[in-house]
Structure formats: C-alpha cells, structure tokens
C-alpha cells in the first residue's frame, strides 16, 4: 500500500514537473519581453542628428551598378530608378590549392568577387584574355613557355569593363551557367545585358558589390 502511494506520488510529481516545464516554455519561450518600440530622440544634438540622417543616404545622380554577388544579380541604376536587372555570375568562393613541388610551395587562390565600392577603370571591345597561372593549375596544364601563348580570343565576350586588380565585368561562352557563382572573381553577363552595361556605363561609373 505504502509502495503504491510512493509510486503514485512520484508519477504525480513527474507529471507536475513536465507540465510546469511545458507551461514555462509556452509562456516565456524566448526569455525576452517583447513590446512596441519607442524610437523618440533623447534630445541631444537634435539638429545635427537630423542633418546627418537627412544626408546619410544619397543615390548618385549618374548611372551606377549594384551587384548582389550571392544571388548573382546585377542592377543598373540611375538615381533611385533601376534601368536594368540582369542575371549574372559572380565568384564561386572556391579555394584553389596548387600542389607543392620540389621547387616551390604551392600557391593558393580564393575565387571571391570582392565586396565594396569599385569603379569602371577601363572599357574594352573584343577583349582578349591572358590566362593566369591559376587557370593552368585548375586544368592540370603545364605553364606555357611564352606569354603570347597565354592569350585567348573570344573567352570574355564582346566587351570588358575593368574594375582593377584583374577583376572585370565581361561576357561568357557559358550563358547556361548564369545565375550560379562560377567565376574566379569576375562578373559575367549575358550578351545583351553586357552590351547595355557597356553602352550605359562610362569610365568612372561606381560599382557597389555586396
């Protein structure tokens, strides 16, 4: 009898603990008290603050480019108006490691499209591509003896806009891969979109990459 009572009490106590736990989770799942916000000024330096806020965002009056490197999307904008939204390809984010050899330790490259503010530094038609070392390493090919052997025609499409440090906006032979991050850091566009960007963006056009 006493044993049954003890078991019953134990079960009741266990149930109480579980129910209390569930109730606590239901009432206060986050551990935080949420309420409507009051964003009023404290009053300090009110005039200066209003001025600062008013000037904090100002779109450039001329044309500029915005690139979402994660979603592979390029926008051409003028002021607050978007004049072109294009699917592009940005950097894959992959890391390439060169094998160590007897002569030297292997080099490494990270294929990111760099975030931040850039500018169109140069524009070219029918650009040629000088294959860098990483392209030979990635393909398992020997380096050529002469630099002239590195030159390839047609790989970059009809136009290239140079951003500096070897990064470009250019065309591609592989338009089916647009929308995926497949590049080594450059931004690839389809033929028609590239022609628009080339036509609309003079040298000096700012490029905002995020």
């Amino acid at each position: 009898m006493k044993r049954r009572l003890l078991i019953g009490a134990g079960i009741a106590l266990g149930a109480l603990v579980v129910l209390t736990g569930v109730a606590l989770l239901m009432v206060d799942r986050s551990g935080y008290h949420y309420r409507d916000a009051d964003f009023a000024f404290s009053g300090a330096d009110r005039g200066a603050r209003r001025k600062l806020e008013a000037n904090f965002t100002k779109p450039p009056a001329k044309v500029y480019i915005v690139v979402d490197r994660t979603h592979n999307r390029l926008e051409l904008r003028k002021g607050s108006t978007t004049t072109l939204t294009a699917v592009c390809s940005a950097g894959s984010g992959y890391k390439l490691v060169e094998r160590d050899t007897a002569k030297r330790k292997g080099r490494q490259w990270v294929f990111d499209t760099p975030r931040g503010i850039h500018k169109v530094k140069n524009k070219r038609t029918d650009p040629v591509w000088k294959r860098p070392d990483w392209d030979y390493i990635e393909r398992g090919e020997a380096f050529p003896r002469r630099d002239s052997e590195r030159i390839e025609y047609g790989m970059l499409g009809d136009y290239a806009l140079d951003l500096g440090d070897g990064y470009m906006i250019h065309g591609t032979l592989y338009e089916r891969l647009l929308g995926r991050g497949v590049t080594h850091g450059c931004i690839r566009l389809g033929k028609d979109d590239l022609a628009t960007v080339y036509r609309e963006c003079p040298i000096g056009t700012p490029i905002y990459i995020y």
Partner: peptide, 23 residues
C-alpha cells in the same frame, strides 16, 4: 567551409567541370 580544390597534376585532369550549387 569553403570548397577546396587541389589542382590536378599536369596531364591528369579529367576535364570534368565542377558546377557550384545555386544560392
């Protein structure tokens, strides 16, 4: 982490193209 690719030895590349996933 980042996908790391070790360059194949000269002359041993399979020619297979690695297609990254969509975002």
């Amino acid at each position: 982490a980042r996908t790391e690719i070790v360059g194949p030895e000269v002359g041993t590349a399979s020619g297979e193209v690695l297609i990254p996933p969509t975002p």
